[in-house]
Design a protein around this nucleic acid. Structure first.
Length: 603
RNA sequence: GCCCCCGUAGCUCAAAGGAUAGAGCGGCUGACUUCGAAUCAGUAGGUUGGGGGUUCGAGUCCCUCCGGGGGCGCCA
């Protein structure tokens, strides 16, 4: 909800009515953006340019569009009766610009922010239920920096969608079964049974190392000897045997599986708590294994899938053929192995059905890295062929992976960057900085603050880059805390808080009675844009917009801070500025919260 | 061969089809006796990968080429 929305609506109607008097039907609605290049506060619209183009197109006027637009703008502007809250209207270069009565506008913004507080910017209920699925780590792995990007992105998205007014369900989908998990179980029982450490975080990482070892033992080597190959193939058949035992529900294998799996889930729970992520529902791959197989049977019966098992093949869906596409697009999807065990896709089909039928979701968002794009295109198309209308409401939020300067991370190469190491290093460095810059902040307070800042900085690194772009991780850049980074935003929040606590009096939303400084106006304008940014970020599933906004808001505050004295100002000015500081602090805090980043009181 | 993503300042990245493409880092010059300098002021740096097209208007949309990354029947 934009401030002065009703007044803007009345202006829109006046413009549209002026258009329709001249037979102009395009544009059908008026859009406003902030006016660049002028040091006055208002909104501008290019509606007359569109209208002029319409007139020319329909042959009603042959003048050049810019000239015609300017004439129209002058004519329309002259006929506008400005509602209360606006000071003047002008026609400029084909645009219509309306200017706020700055003092009244500032008053209105301050009133809104200070009365709504933490709810400032919350959208009205949308009446739709959104499920955000994120955090799909394989068990028996440890959480690495790629999982971190996923978790941070998904959580921010969930917060944005929720705050924007959607009923939101946070779903996590740990991969607790599959070939990888079985390989690791195999290596554990064969080489490391009983060796595990007791500490929760240590144990999660330890089993991750066993996983790496298993991968390397089972990986074909280009220069392997016959004996090595025979050994590896022997291992491989042991793994397949183990998978079949799990599949058949063998009690001992299931017990081993549950025990090792729990180590990873314990680590996951710990990490989620650290990241301040409260998952509403955990789906496990193992739970959708059987339902998935039932679905395969159904798809075969309905002639959507083809069973090639009689001839030694798997169960497949010829998607392009079913859709009548001549160019290969969705290709052929394998939905069940020839030996009858399930695949990723088998299980995802079952999970989608559960989301639709048991959770009644209107929109289903999957936060999963870009390499799974084809998988999701296939899954959504199969759902469509299967007859789920909700398939069109499924959205794969594909994000690019986190790589290293020397290339991709992989357990095989042994160059994994683990979340726990990075966050620990970040906290250590921040503690050192606090010790130097703010020695008074000590002990447990220093540790807590260092945690808020260190983790916040890492989260911001993940959120301030578009999800379509790779992040090349280096310790150097990830742990750089200067400039456009979370600590800058947090610092602005702290500075604002410091002024308020020194002021002693509670800020009130006063009506300013002096000419506001440009830095004051710019800051209040940024504050006023917050609700729109919330909606935009949520509707386009782009936490980046909020990350970017938060920085510009902080920058506007910092500019104000260095240009406008608050506590030493004349009483009337001081009262207004205190309210602006309070509103800025509140909006900074709300923005950071939507990014999943904490707002420290001191730093 | 087919599909998807990316290409913007030296580097990392922003930019609602709109008015003169913006930040940070790095470079250079300055500012702490001031509401704490995790900061600020100033300065340098661009034919938005090339070429066509649509539009009154294109970094943004379409086509094409180049360069980089990813994916493509029984891994997830």
């Amino acid at each position: 909800m934009r401030i002065f929305e009703d007044a803007i609506q009345s202006i829109n109607l006046q413009i549209l009515s002026a258009f329709s008097n001249q037979g102009i039907t395009d544009p059908a609605s008026i859009e406003w953006t902030s006016i660049p290049l002028v040091n006055q506060w208002g909104l501008g619209t290019s509606a007359c340019l569109k209208a002029a183009a319409f007139l020319q197109r329909s042959g009603k006027n042959s003048a050049s569009v810019p000239r015609l637009a300017q004439e129209l703008a002058e004519q329309v502007a002259a006929g506008i009766t400005l509602p209360e809250g606006f000071s003047r209207v002008e026609a400029s270069r084909g645009y219509i610009n309306i200017f706020f009565d700055t003092q009244r506008y500032v008053h209105k913004v301050l009133e809104t922010v200070l009365s709504e507080g933490p709810s400032y910017g919350r959208g009205s209920p949308k009446g739709e239920r959104v499920m955000v699925e994120y955090i799909q780590p394989n068990t028996l792995h440890s959480i690495h920096i790629g999982h971190f990007r996923n978790a941070v992105l998904g959580e921010s998205l969930a917060r944005l969608v929720e705050f924007a007014g959607f009923e939101t369900i946070r779903a996590s989908y740990p991969g607790d079964i599959g070939l990888g998990v079985v390989r690791c179980m195999w290596a554990y029982q064969k080489f490391h049974a009983g060796e595990e450490p007791t500490d929760v975080l240590e144990r999660g990482r330890w089993i991750g190392q066993v996983y790496t070892e298993a991968s390397s033992l089972l990986e074909p080597k280009p220069d392997e000897t016959d004996a090595q190959r025979a050994l590896r193939e022997g291992y491989e058949s042991e793994v397949r045997e183990l998978y079949h035992l799990w599949d058949d529900g063998d009690l001992r294998v299931r017990e081993l599986w549950k025990r090792t799996r729990q180590w990873s889930l314990d680590e996951l729970r710990e990490v989620l708590q650290q990241l301040d992520i409260a998952i509403d529902v955990f789906f496990y791959e193992s739970e959708v294994d059987k339902p998935g197989k039932a679905i395969v049977d159904e798809l075969i019966a309905r002639h959507i899938a083809e069973d090639e098992r009689p001839t030694g093949g798997p169960v497949i869906v010829r998607i392009d053929e079913k859709l009548g596409l001549t160019r290969e697009t969705y290709r052929i999807a394998v939905i069940l192995r020839s030996d009858g065990t399930s695949l990723y896709l088998t299980k995802d089909l079952a999970l989608a059905k559960i989301k639709f039928e048991q959770y009644h979701v209107d929109r289903s968002v999957y936060v999963v890295d870009v390499r799974q794009s084809l998988h999701f295109q296939q899954a959504f198309k199969i759902l469509e062929l299967w007859g789920f209308p909700q398939a069109s409401k499924c959205y794969h939020l594909a994000y690019e992976i986190v790589t290293l300067p020397e290339g991709t991370m992989s357990s095989r190469k042994g160059n994994m960057i683990y979340y726990l190491d990075v966050v620990q290093e970040a906290q250590a460095r921040i503690q050192a900085i606090i010790a130097e810059k703010n020695p008074d902040l000590a002990g447990a307070d220093r540790e807590k603050t260092a945690w808020q800042i260190g983790l916040g900085a890492l989260k911001y690194v993940m959120l301030s880059v578009d999800n379509t772009k790779q992040i090349i991780f280096s310790w150097e850049s990830a742990l750089s805390f200067d400039g456009q980074a979370a600590p800058y935003i947090q610092y602005a929040h702290v500075r604002a808080g410091s002024i308020l606590s020194k002021a002693g009096t509670a800020p009130q939303p006063v009506l300013p009675n002096y000419d506001l400084h440009p830095a004051e106006i710019t800051l209040v304008e940024w504050i006023s844009r917050f609700p729109q940014e919330v909606q935009r970020s949520a509707e386009e599933y782009k936490p980046l917009y909020m990350a970017s906004y938060a920085y510009f808001l902080a920058k506007a505050f910092t500019d104000f801070y260095s240009a406008c004295p608050v506590l030493q100002a004349e009483p009337e000015i001081r009262r207004t500025r205190l309210a602006i500081v309070a509103a800025a602090r509140q909006t900074l805090s709300n923005s950071l919260r939507l990014l999943g980043i904490e707002s420290p009181e001191a730093m």
